[in-house]
Amino acid sequence: MMEWTDTGVVVAVRPFGETGAVVELMTETQGRHAGLVHGGASRRMRPLLQPGNRLRARWKARIADQLGSLSVEADELRAGRLMDDAAALDGVRAACALASIALPEREPHAAVYYGLEALLAGMESTDLWPALLVRWEAGLLADLGYGLDLTRCAVTGEPDDLTHVSPKSGRSVSREAAAPYLDKVLKLPPFLLGTQTGVAAGDVRDGFTLTGWFIERRILWPADRKLPEARTRLIERLETQGRL
């Protein structure tokens, strides 16, 4: 009998039969892991099985390859608290959908899990969470082995005044070296460098463009997938609210 116990964030829920649900959790030790929740469509379970909620979960299966069954109980039910915040809801849906389609199943990515936890907590506590989402996406790329190299300029080797990223190599480029290629290189928002605080107007938009570019090309397109619709809608909403 295979078995584990962990806490995990609900990233996807799909109905299974009339009463069950196949739930994907993002956990620290098991990564993205799915399991069948018996009675997952019940009135008692549905409030728990919402994307963004953190649950205490126990997974059991006879052999490791099986889907297995999950028994869950509430740990941190955030989804209900975010229902009135349209942007935050889009953020939850975008992050959870991205985790669901980008991460390989049953492969631990503790940094992605903790980043997701911090992002979801940040949605309730700070207006800067869109920048946190961009950072989480950059972290997702890094944890999957496609990280951006933002340590020094790909052309000059200098670590200062990094303002752009090469769309091919994912390496940062200094303002001076990027000048002849401004129509080709991607803007690098300073908050991704970690050395500067504060998020200026346009930074979040640049961040979403940057991470979206590489997530699409390095993770999703090879698997014949595309960025979640919820992410596009989030960016549109943030634009409307003047938060990009």
Binding site: P51, M83, D84, D90, T240
Partner: peptide, 13 residues
Amino acid sequence: TVDGAATAHYVAD
């Protein structure tokens, strides 16, 4: 639900 509430916000917009 998260999807239902997101839809409601979208319709309201």
